[in-house]
Design a protein around this nucleic acid. Sequence first.
RNA 1: GCCCGGGUGGCGAAAAGGCAGACGCAGGGGACUUAAAAUCCCCUGGCCGCAAGGCCGUGCAGGUUCGAUUCCUGCCCCGGGCACCA
Length: 862
Amino acid sequence: MRRQYPFPLIEPKWQRYWRRNATFRAFDPGESLPEDHPFRRRHGRAVAPSADDAYAPKSYVLDMFPYPSGAGLHVGHPEGYTATDILCRYRRMRGMHVLHPMGWDAFGLPAEQYAMDTGTHPAVTTKKNVDTFRRQIQMLGFSYDWDREVDTTDPSYFRWTQWIFLQLYKKGLAYEAEVPVWWCDGCKVVLANEEVNADGSCDRKGHPGVYRRPLRQWILKITAYADRLLQDLDLVDWPESIKEQQRNWIGRSEGVEVSFTIADGPAKGEALRVFTTRPDTLFGATFMVLAPEHPLVDRVTTTGQRVAVTAYRAETARKSEVERTALEKEKTGVFTGGHAVNPVNGEEIPLWIADYVLMSYGTGAIMAVPAHDERDLAFAKEHRLPIRTVVRPLDGSEPLGFVGDGVSVDSGLITGLKTPEAKKKIAAWLAEQGLGAPKVQYKLRDWLFSRQRYWGEPIPIVHCARCGSLPVSDDQLPVLLPEMRNYTPTGNAEPPLAKAAEWVSCPCPKCGGAAKRETNTMPQWAGSCWYYLRFLDPKNPSGFVNGEKERAWMPVDLYVGGAEHAVLHLLYARFWHKALHDLGLVSTPEPFQRLVNQGMILGEDNQKMSKSRGNVINPDAVVAECGADAFRLYEMFMGPLEAAKPWSTQGLQGVYRFLGRVWRLFTDEASVEAFEQALTLAGHEGAAAEKALGGVRPHAAIQDAEPTAEQQAALHRAIRKVTEDLDTLGFNTAVSALMVFVNEAMAWSVRPRAAMRTFLLLLAPFAPHLAEELWRLLGGERTLAYEPWPTWDPKWFAVTEVEIPIQVNGKLRDRLTVLAGATPQEIEALARASEKVRVLCAGKTIRKVVVVPGKVVNLVVS
RNA sequence: GCCCGGGUGGCGAAAAGGCAGACGCAGGGGACUUAAAAUCCCCUGGCCGCAAGGCCGUGCAGGUUCGAUUCCUGCCCCGGGCACCA
C-alpha cells in the first residue's frame, strides 16, 4: 500500500521530543514542577498535588507488566497498553496528575531453560529480552514515565521482595513443611497446584505425568486471609466474572463439624470428625468414607480387610491426585471392616475408604448420605450400600437423589422441618451435646511458595543446626544469586543452588557458627505481588516504598490486563497487600480499585495466535508498514476492549487510510509533494528530512474564520461522543466519532482554524504523533499533551428542524419534518394529516396516539 | 455437570425501551489517469417488483409494552472458567 503520510519521520520525532522534555514524568506529592512544565503553565502552580489536594486529582493507571519472553512483543500486549495510554493522555488533558509506569516481570523458567541448553546466564537472556520489549513498547509512543521502570530481577528490586517475604515470615505467615508437592519430570521442578492442568500435565510446557512427591517446602498462609479476600471483593470495581472466579477459588462453605465415634478395633471410642454442609441429613448417613491417607485408616481396618485396604492405598498413592480427580470414572473404594456410631441415632455404620474423598479438604472424612448426595449415591450403588431417604422435595418429586432444600422426614427431632430450620435445629442440638460445632471451610489452600529453580529470588533464610531457620538480617539483603556454570537441577529434587557450595555456607546470624543458606527460590508470582507499589518510589534505597508517596498515589485507579490472571496473580497480590496493610505499611485495604480485562486478539483465521498455526501478527511489521498511530488506532477500532476479536489486515489498512485523510485534511497538497521530493534527496530520516517536513504548509482551507453553526454542530457532536466514550472506555466508538467528523470536514471549503485545532485535541490521545505534528503545523509551540480537553456546548445541537418517524401500529410508515420546538399536539396533528397515514387508517379507528417529542410518533389503529 | 460471557448484514461492529445495521472492511458503479495504483464521489441486510412500493429481518419459541436487538420465561448454539471441595 502507498504511504499515506510521513509517519516514519513524525513518530520518532515526537517520541524523541517527549523523552527529551520528560513530558510524561509523574511528579510526586510536594515535588516542584519545573518552571516551564506545561502542567505548571496551565495551572499556574509550582507544586504537584498532595494527597489532600482536591483540585488536581491523581490517577494511577496501570498495565499488567509483561514477562519479557524471547518471542518479543505480541499484538495482544499493546491492546491494553494502548487503551490505558489513551486514557492517561486524556486524563492529563483533563488536568489530572497521572502515574503511568511500565516494568518487567523478568524472573521465570524460559530464561533458565535456555541457560540449561546453552550455558547463557539467565540474566543475559533477560536483559536482551527486556531491551527488545522496551524498544517495541517505546516505538508505539506510550506515555510511560520511564524513570520509574522496574525489573523484578534487579537486586535493588528483589531486595525488597525478599524483605517483604521476611515481614510475612516474622508475622507467622510463612512456614516450612514437608509436603507432597507436584513434581514435573519434564521441567525438573516443583509446580504449584495452580500450575497443574486437570489432565495431569504441567501448565508451563505441557509435559504429561506430573506426580506428587514429598519435599520440604516454604508455604505462605494465604488461608489466614480467606475471609477477607472474599469479603473485600465487595470493595472493588471489578468485572463480576473475575470476582466470581475468585469467590469460587476461595470456596467458602458453611457447615458443621460432627463427631462420630469409632465403634470397634484399636481406635474404639475415638472421635471421627467429618465436615458437612447438610447436618439435616445426618439421619440418612448409611456409611462413612475416609480418604485413603486418613490417619485413622490403619487402626480401623480389620485383619480380614487389611490386604484389600493396603492394596487400595498403594494404588491411590501411585496415582496423582490429578489422576484421581481427572477422569469421570466409577467410584472406587474398599471396606475397612470398621464401623462408627452415628451420634444422632446411635446407629453403627461401616467405614470405607475411597479416593473421591480428599485428605486435603475438611477433615479428610465424610458421612455418606447417598440419598441426597450425587457422589455418595454413585458410590452406594457401585458397592451395594443401603440408601435412606430423609429429605422430601416440596414439589412432591422423587426424593431419592434430591440434593436441594425440602422437608426432613424420618429424622427424629427435625422431622417435618424445612431444610434451613432443620439445619439450625440439628446444629444447635449437636453443639449442646458437645458432638459438633459450626464450621466454615474453604477450598483455598495455603500457597506453596518455594521452587527448586535457579532464576528466582533466593528465599532469605539461613538454616543453622543449632538455632534452626533464621531470617537473613535486613542489612544483609539482598541475598544475591550465586554465579553458576550449570543450571541443571540435581535431579534428586535438590535445587540448583544447592550445588553452589561456597554460596550455601554462611555464618549463622544468631550464633555465628557454620550454617547453610536456603536453596529454594521464590515462584514467579512473588515479584508481581507488589510491583505496583515499587512504581511509586522505584529508586528508594531505604524502604520498599515511601509512606507519603504511597498514600498520595494508591490505590491503583485502573488496572488493565488479561483475564488469565483472574485468580492467581490477582489473589496473591491482594493477599500480600492485605498483609502489608495489617503491618501498617500500606494505606488501602485493596490494591486495585478498578480492573478491566482486555479481550484476546485472535489471528485472521479467528484462531488463537500461535507459531504453529502461522497466524501470528508481528507488531514490528505493522509499525513498519502503517506506523504506530495506525497500529494503536486499529487496536482500539477493532471492537470493545473486553471482547475477543480477530485481527484483520484490511481493517488496519482502513484505519491507516483514515489517518491519511486526516493528514490531507490539514496539509497543503503542493507543499507535501515538494516535501516528498525533498525526501528522495535527503533520505527518509535525519535532520535534513526533518527540515523538509518543516516545509509542509497547512491546507489553504484552514483559515481564521468563525465556524458556521453546522461546523460547530459537527465539532461539538464529536467532542461529546469522544468524551463520553472515553469515560466509559468505549474506544471503538470514540474512533468512529473521529471518523464521522473527518468525513464531514473533508467537504468544508473553509476549515476554521479553531475548530480544526480542537479536533486535534480529540485525536491526540489516540494518534498522538500525528496530532502533535499537525498541532505544530497549525502554530502550536509546544506539546499538546497538557492542553485543556475541549468541552461541548449543547446549544450547537439545537437544530431548527428535526425529522420524526411516524409509526402505525409500531411499524415505520412515514417521516415528518417539524420545527425543533413543536409541541406534541402539533406533531400529532401533522402525523394524522400525513397522506400515507390517512391511507393506512382509512376505515379504521385511531385508538391511541403516542408522541415522544423529538423521537417518534406512534398511531394505534384497528 | 456447575458458574460466567456471547449469538445483529458477506466480515469487524453500532444502537438512554423509540427510524436496526453508525463507523470501518469487503463488493459494485462513477470521476481523475494513456493505464494501473492512490485519491475523490455514489450505491450496497434479504426477498418480490420495470418502478412506486411492499413483505421479511437482531440464535429459536413465547410473554410484557402503543412500540423490544434492548426487559421477563423457557430452549438451542458458541467462547471462557471451575470441575468428586462433602
